[in-house]
């Protein structure tokens, strides 16, 4: 060990120090990026929503607005577009009520373990459809599910389905009854609508064209 002429490249001390420096640098960079990202993904405010100022994650009151998903030429992928005001379960929600509703919905999504069958923002189980843009899914908009559940609006149909999923089977693989109450179902729908308004950099890709493409059928048989 005490050889004077030994190369620095074989020095354990050299590599230990290099490892510490590289790890430290990477950690500092990550923390710095985390601060930047946290700023960009904190929830926007109700006032900004009203003024049309975009946030990657809008305020809970986004449930009072029409949400769409459209192709953006400049960014080269689809982005959520917040439109005119629309009623959610027949009323406009105050900032406080909307926030409480979203809180309840997020809690319920965890309590009912949605993530171990579905994916949320693409993460979770792969046993059931992705819920990232579920609010915008053609299935709820083309009359299919409102017809089956006998409800007038999309949100009511969603809530009804969540409360009694196995009564409205659309596939051999069904969603089980998780004992979701009326309040929880409404909150979950708010959670889903809010999630659909998150700017996910274009994930899932081509989602807005899904209905059109389905008409053509798949040619992958």
């Amino acid at each position: 060990m005490s050889k004077k002429s030994a190369s620095v490249w074989t020095s354990i001390r050299f590599w230990r120090r290099s490892a510490a420096w590289v790890t430290g640098t990477a950690t500092v960079l990550l923390i710095w990026l985390t601060f930047d990202t946290m700023g960009q993904i904190s929830m926007g405010s109700d006032a900004d929503l009203a003024k049309g100022i975009k946030h990657r994650i809008p305020a809970a009151t986004v449930i009072n607005y029409h949400v769409d998903y459209q192709f953006d030429q400049k960014r080269g992928h689809e982005v959520p577009v917040i439109g005119e005001k629309e009623k959610f379960f027949g009323k406009e929600w105050s900032a406080k009520d909307a926030a409480a509703l979203l809180h309840h919905g997020k809690l319920t999504s965890q309590a009912k373990n949605c993530m171990n069958c579905h994916t949320l923002l693409g993460n979770g189980g792969y046993y059931a459809p992705d819920l990232t843009k579920a609010w915008l899914d053609a299935k709820w908009n083309d009359g299919t599910m409102t017809g089956i559940t006998g409800k007038n609006t999309k949100e009511e149909a969603m809530a009804e389905f969540l409360m009694h999923p196995s009564q409205y089977p659309t596939h051999a693989r069904m969603m089980p009854d998780l004992g979701i109450t009326q309040d929880e179902a409404v909150a979950l729908v708010a959670f889903l609508k809010h999630m659909s308004a998150i700017d996910t950099n274009g994930f899932p890709r081509n989602f807005s064209q899904s209905a059109k493409r389905l008409e053509g059928g798949t040619h992958a048989h």
Partner: peptide, 20 residues
């Protein structure tokens, strides 16, 4: 191929792919 690139995702696209 089927669910994502071809059909663009979503409820129906998901189950079409699951049934092939």
């Amino acid at each position: 191929l089927v669910e994502r690139a071809d059909l663009g995702g979503g409820w129906d696209a998901y189950f079409i792919a699951q049934d092939l």
